[in-house]
Design a protein around this nucleic acid. Structure first.
Lengths: 154, 154
DNA sequence: ATTGAAAATTAACCTTG
DNA sequence: CAAGGTTAATTTTCAAT
């Protein structure tokens, strides 16, 4: 697999991280290459797996889910079947915006967004606490969340 | 502030969350409206703040930063000036992919990506542990990270 | 608020340096 | 691997419903 990103690739990535909908000719101008080159380069970046996709960033508060939390989950170490049942379903629930599989005391951190505190409580009860694979969970309310849109390297 | 998303808005959002680069005419077809309508709707969603932006999703592993971690930071409650210095700078560092301002024992959770374990250790020392606003920090390694690309409501 | 059609812009392909 | 030129597709505007 090829790696190594040259300056043009870096410029393309930085521009697309900032604005995924940037038209290809403007993108090319920013990176200082011909439009056709930019097109090929971006396709190559996608094929190489450097770019995983392009997504709209939607504010959960504006779509009826103003309450966000981090739910730290510790699984019961036994019973592989239950654990698989958890890992293959819960992180993909629509309320889960992202999930981190982590080392340490907890096994998963779930970033969730729900319409209200009571909806959050019920969701945790139904989907987490009572799940057979879950040993323990701890919920931390999120006051604010910032996405860095961090570019590659520094 | 206007809220209320009708079915067309929901369809547009779902499609753009899945693929921000979807051509406007295809987007319109999916939502069952004319291309010009889709364009106006999407602009309205942006103006209303429902859509915050469109971003390329870049794999940190492929851009030289394979080591990811959650750094939980507890600030010293005193000294407002130091706290402001922290909150206005550290979450915006390029190594920080996202930051959560949270309730509870910790004040911030920083999702960071770095080239190596030693780079992570040095970064935490330089930027977090030794920062005058920081009382304590605890680092959790990330084995895996999934983004749900969750659409609005369910 | 939505539409359909015209005008402007852009993407994609292909040939050449 | 990059650049320019040509065609096809797409975005955007606008008058009308």
């Amino acid at each position: 697999m090829s790696d190594e990103l040259d300056d043009v690739d870096q410029a393309l990535l930085a521009a697309l991280i900032a604005d995924a909908r940037l038209a290809n000719n403007r993108l090319a101008a920013r990176a200082g290459v011909a439009a056709s080159t930019a097109l090929l380069r971006v396709r190559a970046l996608i094929d190489r797996g450097v770019i995983r996709g392009f997504h709209a960033d939607v504010d959960p508060e504006r779509v009826g889910r103003p309450v966000q939390a981090i739910v730290a989950v510790r699984l019961r170490a036994h019973d592989r079947r239950h654990i698989d049942a958890f890992t293959s379903t819960v992180p993909r629930l629509p309320e889960v915006m992202q999930s981190f599989h982590v080392a340490g005391d907890d096994d998963y951190l779930l970033h969730v967004a729900l319409p209200s505190a009571s909806a959050l409580r019920e969701w945790i009860l139904d989907r987490v606490t009572t799940h057979p694979a879950v040993a323990h969970s701890r919920t931390t309310l999120i006051f604010g969340h910032d996405t860095g849109h961090t570019g590659p390297l520094t």
